[in-house]
């Protein structure tokens, strides 16, 4: 893998990193991807492997609940806002987007 590819991934993942680290990552991806590439060897899959989970009494299913509020308005606001690094008059402050 080329350093240019790592650069693109870093942008997509929103991670700032220096060239040395990119080089090291490019190198390690070679060995990691060749190891995980083993999955390509597996053939003869019957085709029903996707989304089947026929284990006795334990079929996968969606869990639903009524769409109702479980807390009162503002119940957690103070605690949650206390963790926000940058605020102004009770709002989360970010840099100009447009």
């Amino acid at each position: 893998m080329e350093i240019e590819d790592i650069k693109k991934l870093a942008v997509m993942a929103r991670i700032d990193m220096d060239e040395d680290e990119m080089k090291e990552i490019a190198k390690s991806f070679g060995s990691i991807l060749s190891y995980v590439g083993q999955v390509q060897e597996v053939s003869n899959l019957s085709g029903d492997e996707v989304a089947t989970d026929n284990i006795e009494n334990h079929k996968l299913h969606n869990i639903m609940r009524e769409d109702i509020a479980t807390n009162t308005r503002g119940e957690y606001t103070e605690k949650i806002m206390a963790e926000v690094p940058d605020t102004e008059s009770g709002f989360i402050k970010v840099k100009q987007i447009l």
Binding site: V11, R14, I15, D16, V84, P85, I92, V94, K95, Q96
Partner: peptide
Amino acid sequence: IRYGLHVEADKLFDVYT
């Protein structure tokens, strides 16, 4: 932005990265 480490920068994108 919402919690955790925040590093100041001029643009929003750079705050993320």
